[in-house]
Amino acid sequence: MAETHTVQPGDRAIAYLTLTPSAAVLLLLVAVPTITVIGISLQDVGFGEMSGPWIGLENFAWALTSRTFWTALKNTFVWVFGSVSLEMMLGLGLALLLNRTFALRGVARAIILAPYLIPTVVAVLVWRYMFHDIVGILNYMLMSVGLISKPMVWLASTSTAMLSVIIVGVWKFFPFVVIALLGILQSIPQEQYEAAEIDGASAFQQFWRITLPHILPVFLLTALLRTIWTFHKFEIIYLLTGGGPLDSTTTLPILVYIKGFADFELGRAAAIALITFFILVVLLAVYFGFMKRAEARQ
């Protein structure tokens, strides 16, 4: 915790006054909407309407009994698990690599960071061009090395769409893991490695006994943070496939959008959004609990 002032007269007024605008904005833009969305989820909102008769939990019952919802839930888990596990593995590998000294390391770091900084729409445009079945470079490369015999329709086939979306997501977001882990790797005291070296520990033993225990808390925290963010990612999937083909990449956020703003059934959309939110709250509770513990240890 940071140091605070010794309290002086008038401080209380200043503290609350400076906080009021922020509190007001968050109240109007986050708290009130959250209450509104709960209200909407309990109403039967017709096509293109903004409100409707109260129907209790019917929208939730509809969601939990509809096949679309369960497909979306399953897709969400595939998307989150696939993306986060690959991001963590790739992120750890490249963080270890960038932690070594070599010429042009700054350049390498900039290149590896770049995907995280570019706008999502840009990432999507480039990858859609590369994924293109006829003029795309990906099919051309894979065919010239003989991995595939005929061009694949990456984004338009139910069997490869999810994989393709995960590839783009991992490419775009793994640099976050690299940066997070690079920070903690550089804080490991070098003497520990030197001592291990003298004792004849192999590189693998050094990683297992020194590096891993040291970075583990940050590694887990980063994985959790990536899970939360990946869970409610919308635009990267929407722009790549729109949730298709045939629901194969429809995750919960995509389903909320489709229900709310393509089918214009705001009540049902709100119900799905709230279920999504409940799952997220569980993840957030774990995250905050974890952070409290990490803070207590410091």
């Binding site: 986050v30 959250t34 969305v37 409610h232 956020p253 909320v256 959008y257 709310g260 959309a269 709230l274």
Partner: peptide, 12 residues
């Protein structure tokens, strides 16, 4: 950390 899709409905 709130999901955008949750508040986009009421804000709309």
């Amino acid at each position: 950390m709130l999901p955008e899709v949750l508040i986009v409905i009421p804000l709309y």
